[in-house]
Amino acid sequence: MSVDKATVEKIAALARIAISEDEAQRLVPELNNIIGWVEQLGEVDTSNVEPMTAVIPNTLRLREDVVTDGNVRDDVLANAPQAEHGFFAVPKVIE
């Protein structure tokens, strides 16, 4: 699989990272180099192998349905770049 500039731009857009033409150009060989290298995994016969789901064999613990949190609006908003009237503010979204 070879990554071209259009793919780099598509990936950057999906990842919400603005990149310039130059950066896109520079990333093409860099990503190709890395992607090409990880593709050696294709050599491994993994038929009948399950993908790992838990690093240390373990299953999910569940918590009880009890309210133990919330009511911490000051903490929630404390680091906000822009908070108004108890909300986070963002540029107007048109839906």
Binding site: M1, V3, T7, V8, I11, A12, L14, A15, I17, L27, L31, I34, I35, V38, L41, G42, V44, T46, V49, E50, P51, M52, T53
Partner: peptide, 25 residues
Amino acid sequence: MIGTYVLSAGFYDAYYTQAQKVRTL
């Protein structure tokens, strides 16, 4: 970018699932 690429439509199984299988091995 690499992570976004390997999870993107059409590539997920070839990269991510294969990597997790290799991890099992």
